[in-house]
């Protein structure tokens, strides 16, 4: 379980499908039915062409480490030094996350290393999508 002091997201009508997905162990993205753009963060229309015909789909959960910092002054609910990372998903969009399952050091956190999603439960409603190095 995540530290209860960690800032907790509050879903809105436009993002509910995303947080329903993480609770079910799925990373859900949206794709425009008109221009095929895959986008994040969630909204009920396409940011590329403004079409309101969009579909939610289960993403692969795979991506690569795009950039990060290692924070040395922990935020509430965090301890020690930890990476605040941006992951570029295989489907194209980028999202902020944390990297688990490896040391939080520049040596271990190599840009473009392959990552896969994992879910950390905060409470009954919220699970956060985190990423870990792909094994092997």
């Amino acid at each position: 379980m995540a530290d209860p002091k960690r800032p907790r997201p509050m879903p809105t009508p436009e993002t509910k499908h995303f947080w329903d997905g993480t609770r079910a162990g799925e990373l859900r993205l949206q794709r425009c039915d008109a221009c095929a753009k895959v986008y994040f963060p969630p909204r009920p229309f396409c940011p590329a062409c403004a079409s309101q015909s969009v579909s939610v789909f289960k993403a692969s959960g795979r991506g690569r480490l795009f950039s990060y910092v290692i924070n040395h002054r922990p935020a509430p609910g965090f301890t020690g030094e930890y990476a605040i990372a941006v992951v570029e998903l295989d489907e194209g969009p980028r999202m902020m996350s944390n990297i688990t399952g490896c040391p939080q050091t520049p040596e271990a956190l190599v840009l473009d290393m392959p990552l896969e999603v994992t879910f950390e439960t905060m409470d009954d409603e919220i699970s956060l999508p985190l990423f870990r190095p792909v094994q092997g």
Partner: peptide, 24 residues
């Protein structure tokens, strides 16, 4: 959107956000 998709990952003021693109 920031509250849902950035703050939960431990951003803590500009030094932890403005700086993120630099390693790239």
């Amino acid at each position: 959107l920031i509250g849902q998709f950035e703050l939960p990952y431990g951003t803590f003021g500009p030094p932890t956000m403005f700086t993120i693109p630099v390693l790239r």
